[in-house]
Design a protein around this nucleic acid. Structure first.
Lengths: 249, 249
DNA sequence: TCAAATGTTGCAAATTATTGCAAAAAATAG
DNA sequence: CTATTTTTTGCAATAATTTGCAACATTTGA
């Protein structure tokens, strides 16, 4: 087997599987590990792969978190925010939770919109204050260091005083069977209260969070009304969720 | 599994769910907790995540940046903040208002201090959340776009539930005869309530604000107990205030 | 305050890399 | 085709990295 031929095979393998192990290649190509190592080195020098200890990775594997405004999956979140904003009408009372997607909604909110927002998230509140016409009401309480939101029974009691038309809720994990799940109990309590009070709950989730689970359940999918992702509503990946009767936009 | 591959998975998990536990990762990736801990350390060194005890957090949750050069009379405010902090003791309940001096207090708060803060200011609350040991309670309500604090009767009612040991109040204008004055009526109402509830009120003011007046009176100087400026307590400029019986530090 | 959980450090075993070298293979010139 | 040079390959010794473990320190929460 020629050297070029071998390297072509290696490159193909890397691109198909996103990773290769030195030992596997050595076996498959029937050459010593030293030879494979030298081949990988050459391919890496030619910028075709990413060499790591023990093997190599495809270059597309590592495109994470460069610019992107420091926010993970920023593009997707902007698409979701735009879809969510299309649901807003002047005069609405809207409950809005924390998370970077909701932050993005607050950021790109059309200036002429007159909506009253109710929130427990410090970051979201900060951003909403930049808006010229909308009002913001913050539900106070003990603040959670990790989620940066108000938590505790007092918050739930306060939420009872509102009957919002809409609730924009950021997802942590969503699964067709398990429903909406969270990792933080305090957040679960707040989210449940928010959902219960709202006439309509809109769940915002990037596609990457679909079919993932955490340990604590917030609610089943039938407790919410609309699901927004960055995907086209007819995307097959959303089929399991459509089946549960969710409106998908 | 390759080391880089594992770290990429961890990074993805953190970015999707905002928070991961060491123990969960160890189980999911089938490596020892030591290895996960080392991976988290490397990702944190590369500024990709925020390592905390027991796991890690996404960086996009921690975007609050404090720019000291944006703050007028920054040096003076740091001196005032240090003096104010010297009054704090473990276990105290402290009411703290908004303004850049209070923000500076929150920023340079000694890490080992265990104080419970109550505030109506979004910025102050945000900064206090960065502190490892102190608790923060936010009094919610309608938010004022200009002052970025909760305002309204509801806030006053909530304040009644607290009996703080200390109140750190940022000054807008202070004068030996006129007392403390403000330009914003909503702020006046809140400040009065804060002073009334607290066992001791500490007024924080840069020397520049001494002998200035605004149109709305908050209270006379005999309603407060301590005055902190960046000046030496024996400075002659403070004489008129000492006469009113204020403690000056 | 104490007990439990988490973090730190040093260490040894296993794995992977690097280097130099000699034999094999391929390329080149005569 | 042969002799010579160049490249490639495998091997061995050595170095570096990774990993899990255990002892010890620190932090946390009751």
């Amino acid at each position: 087997m020629l050297k070029k031929e071998r390297q072509a095979l290696i490159l193909r393998e890397v691109n198909i599987h996103n990773k290769v192990l030195l030992s596997d290649l050595s076996t498959k190509l029937e050459v010593s590990e030293d030879t494979v190592r030298r081949d990988l080195q050459e391919l890496a020098d030619a910028q075709k792969i990413l060499k790591v200890r023990g093997g190599a990775l495809s270059k597309s594997y590592h495109v994470y978190s460069y610019k992107e405004r420091d926010i993970y999956a920023y593009q997707s979140k902007t698409i979701i925010a735009r879809k969510a904003i299309s649901l807003l009408r002047d005069g609405m009372l809207v409950l809005i939770s924390g998370g970077s997607t909701n932050l993005e909604i607050a950021r790109i909110l059309p200036p002429e919109l007159r909506v009253t927002f109710v929130t427990v998230s410090l970051s979201t509140a900060m951003q909403l204050l930049e808006h010229p016409k909308s009002e913001t009401i913050f539900i106070g309480g003990q603040l959670s260091k990790s989620a940066k939101i108000s938590v505790g029974g007092e918050v739930v009691a306060q939420l009872n005083h509102f009957r919002p038309d809409l609730c924009f809720m950021g997802a942590n994990a969503i699964d067709a069977e398990e429903g909406i799940t969270e990792s933080d109990w305090e957040v679960v309590v707040i989210k449940r209260a928010m959902i219960q009070q709202s006439a309509k709950t809109v769940l915002l989730s990037i596609a990457e969070k679909l079919n993932t689970r955490q340990k604590l359940r917030v609610c089943n999918l039938d407790s919410i009304h609309t699901l927004i992702t960055e995907l086209d509503p007819v995307n097959p990946a959303l089929e399991p969720y459509r089946k549960t009767g969710l409106t998908i936009i």
